[in-house]
Each structure stands twice: as C-alpha cells, then as structure tokens.
Design a binder for these strands. Sequence first.
RNA 1: GGUCCCGUAGCUCAGCAGGAUAGAGCGUCGGAUUCCUAAUCCGAAGGCCACAGGUUCGAAUCCUGUCGGGACCGCCA
Length: 575
Amino acid sequence: MNIFSHFSQQITDITDTLIKNGTITLTDTAKPAACEPPRDSSHGDISTNYAMVMAKSAGMSPRDLAAHLVKDIAHLDGVTDVNIAGPGFINLTLDPAIWQQRIDDILAANTAWGVNDIGKGEKINVEYVSANPTGPLHAAHARGAIIGDSLANLLETCGYDVTREYYINDAGNQVDVLARSVFTRYKQALGDSSAKVADGQYPGEYLIDTGQKLAKVHGDELLNMDESEWLPLARSFAIDDMMETIKADLGRLNIHMDRFSSERQLVKNGAVDTAIGKLKDNGLIYLGVLEKPKAGNADDWEPREQLLFRSTDFGDDVDRAVKKSDDTWTYFASDIAYHLDKLERGSDKLINIWGADHGGYVKRMKSAVSAFTGQKDSLNIQLVNFVKLLDGGKQIKMSKRAGTFVTLSDVLDTVGKDILRFIMLTRRADQTMDFDYAEVTTQSRENPVFYVQYAHARACSVLRQDEAVKIDVSGANLSLLSDPTEMALIRLLASYPRQVEAAGQAFEPHRIAFYLMDLAAAFHGLWNKGRDDPSLRFITDNTALTAARLNLVNATAVVIRNGFAVLGVDAINEM
RNA sequence: GGUCCCGUAGCUCAGCAGGAUAGAGCGUCGGAUUCCUAAUCCGAAGGCCACAGGUUCGAAUCCUGUCGGGACCGCCA
C-alpha cells in the first residue's frame, strides 16, 4: 500500500461527498491537491493542501474549508489526530501501526515493492545510445546510455510497456568513409605497406582489427573490384563489426536493447518517401528558399530552392530541409521516417535521449512527430549534458583526431559497471558533470555508491549473524519498532513507492539515486545510535524485539536492492 | 542575431506540475570506537535561492526583462 495515495484517495472521497451534499460548492474545477510528508516531522505524518487548493473556487477561506474536511478526516481509519495549520494545511497524524505494517508489505512484495501502474500498460519507446557505427562507444556515450536504460527500467516499474531501441545511423556519407578507412586497413592486412590512412578517413586503430577480419573472410577478392563493388561490401562488414563491439560494450553495462533500427533499411524500404509523402498530403512539404543562417560560419551559403518541411507550423523557428542538393534525403528526412516508424509500430509515446549538443534539433523533431500524431507531447526529448572526465582533479584530455579518446570499455575496466551507472545518476540530466576516477573509486562517505552499497552490506551482515539466523521472524510484532529513529527509517521505506511514482511521472531516474542516499543515511544513523545505546541494537536478548528489528533491516535491504535494480546496479552483500 | 540549458552555503549539488523555519555531502570547528562492519555516526557555524519587476492568500519554484556561464544555429550525422 502506498500510504500517501491511499489517504489522498480517502480525502478526495470526502470532498466529493461534501460537494454532493451541498456543503461545498465549487464554481470551478480545483487544481490537483497533494498528500505529502510534511517538511517538519513535528507537523505529523501527512500534510495536505486540499483546503488551500479548493478555497478559491469554493469561495471560502482555506481554514474554514479545512474545518469542514477535518471533521470527516478525523474518522478515517488509522488517523489519530488531525489539525489545521498555517495558511490552511491539514496535518494528519497516523497510528504508528499504519507505518509499521508496511514492513510486512515490503517483505511480502519483495522485488515488487515500488511497482505501480501509472503507465497503465501504455506502449512507450525509449530510444537511447544510437551512437554512430563508426567506432566503439566512448566515455561520453556512457551517461546517455545509462540515463536511458535506467529510465526504461523506471518506466517498466511504473507499468509502461517499454521498448528499448537503438537507431543505427548506417546511411549517409560517414559510413562510406568508414568503408574506405576499413579498406585501407584491409590492404594493410594483406601486406600492402604502401596503403596509408588518407586524410579524412578514420585513423582509429580499432579498424586494424576490422581490416584483418575482412581479409580473413574475403581474402584478396576485394582488391580486384571497382569501388562501387567493394565499398558496399566493406561498409556492411564494418558496420556489423562495429555494432558487435558496441553491443558487447553495452552488455558490460547491462544494457540490452529490444530493437536495433537501421536507417539504411528505412531508406531502402522507401519509408522516407512514404513519410514525406504523408506530410506532403497534409500540405506540410513545399519548395522554398531558406534564409542564410546567422551563425557566422556559413560563408559559402547560397540561397537555393529546396524541399522544405513546414516545421514552423508546430513551433520551430524556421522550416527545415528534407532533401540535399544531390537529391538524396537529409538526415532529418530519414529521422522523420524513423519516428513515424516508431509510432506505426504501436508506441503511444516516444522518448529520445540525446546529447545536449543536439538541443537545436529538438524543435524540428517534435514538430515532425506532432505533424503525425496531431498532439503536442507525443515525443519527449531528454537532453543529457556533458561529462568532464578527471583523474584526481586533473582533466583527461580527449581528442578524436589525436586518437586519445577514452573508450567506454576503458572506463568500465577502471571503475566497473555499478559505480559508473550509479554515479551517472547522481546529477540531474541537464547538469554538466565531473566524473573523477579517483573520487568515484574511494571507499568513503563522499562516494555515494559506496555509501549505499555499504548500507546494504551492513544490513546483510546483521542478517547473517548466528543469533539472527536462529530467530523466527515471521509474524513479528512490528509495534515494538517505536524509537523515533526507527520510525524515521520506516517512513522512508514506506515512501519508496511514492518516490518511484514521482520519478516515473517526471521521467527522472536520478531521483531514485538521491532517495537511496537518504535511505542509506537513515540506516547508518540508526546503526550508530545502536552503538551509543545498546538497547537500540538490532540484535538484542529480547527475541520478539529482535525479530521485529530484523524485519526492519531486511526491509531496508529489499528497498535498496529494488532501487538499485531500477538504476541497473547490483547490490553487494559483503564488503 | 536567434534558440535551448544553467546560476541555491566557501566548494559540489538536491529541491522546481507554487506551500509552513530553503536541504545534503565536502571543507571548517567540537564530539562518539570494550558494541550487529567507526569504510560509520552526532552536533555547531555557514544563505537577499544571480538581479529587477509581475502573477496570488503564498514564489527558489510560474511569467517578463537584465546580467553572468555553457551548448547549439548550413544539404554533416
């Protein structure tokens, strides 16, 4: 049971009744009210703003209105006290048993504690990573990958039917460059020492391996072909090889996509023609001339009539080109087709995780999706800001040209999946972030991953004790958990479903990471109180009390594991 | 020139579908170790929530403008 939504429902019922019997008359639909934990625990267990929210349309002062509500709220099951405070807050104090019983709920639900159904089975497509198949994933990809994957986990927990998807940009010029670069390495592999990586080709050494594989599979037969023949061969070989590497790296991050969509496939299927045709049928495609961009680096700009999408109809700043001068589709055009494809495969909602450097594309993409769905918010784009890599406060310089970029695989070798995943979620997505190797691998309070892991390991350590293992904890008398520090921990545990719901609604998995840090702090706090005051230790010579406390410890471990699961982090039982 | 993001304690950041006295960690200062993991905990000090207006019972949160930092702005992907 989610205590907050439970009482929210009860109070809503009360207001409905008061409206029905004429005690309250609303002239207007009131804004949604909330039941929340009060900021100050001395105000009680639940604080609600029902009266303040309804006051205006009821034509009453908040406090007068509250007085009506309070009469009925006082009779609700589990409510021991209710009062009106400040400008019109209604504060409820609950029977401690209401909280204590949640421990049974948590243990019974186990991995399902926190699961809700706000998604109502709606189909939602989360597209993330989608790195170009021209090289291995590098460190900069990690954050978007992790945020996307954790968001997908979170939405599943919230009852959405989630598709995890990767869009492969395997059309266009860059994969031809990849093909030529691999061809050079292929010639080298066959002993042609005169073959040199040309200007503009990808110099990365990772392609040496791909060239050798190509030589192994095809021998020297590509050498006798025209470029028009060998290029497609080398291209698809290289793309497949890169995608294998990328999938392997994602696997190390515990990311498993449901689907990889190929841009080339879409173009080949004529999906782009179809999609643009649809827009054209709606009068949204026309021949026009764009103004010169004002960026300053467009010296070679020439006004030219071209095929444009009327994205300004949907809030974009200018209309956008869908065809290039060589008569092929622009990237945007195939992206339009791709998003239509996602919609046609049955997704009600689309989420894209993009790097902050793609911010300028948000409006046009949303415009295109709106053009298809007729709705404004079918596409949600989460921009993920940059990560600065440091080691002991010193920035690690990365340059693609110099070949000194840090691969995702390198980072995983250094810090491991769990640290990387958790740390990437300790900041809001739109904030830039420093990722310091030295800092994230220290085992101290400053390192949040360690701190939460330690709380879990400590809990496990208690449950492992001989005295603990011996005790039958089923049916323990939870009312014995009455110390304020214990109650504070229980309240946190009980509020986990509410946290998941809020995070899911906001599409913000980082909230779970912050919640876990709070939870760990509450647990460590209780633990240390037991150091000072032996009567508060989990294992005591009172069997009934110990049984109750062991359930509390176990529930804490369950919630940490569930939170970790959303973040894709494995809990550690012993450190 | 335009669009988007950011500006909260000395530092790093939460909080933002408006709610009561604005929170946490680090750092500083002062404490706790015969005890289930002290890799931890407790306490103190520290704030014109960038600035100025507006919206209302109420604004860090919403709106407008200003200043400061960042990203982006072509048929690249």
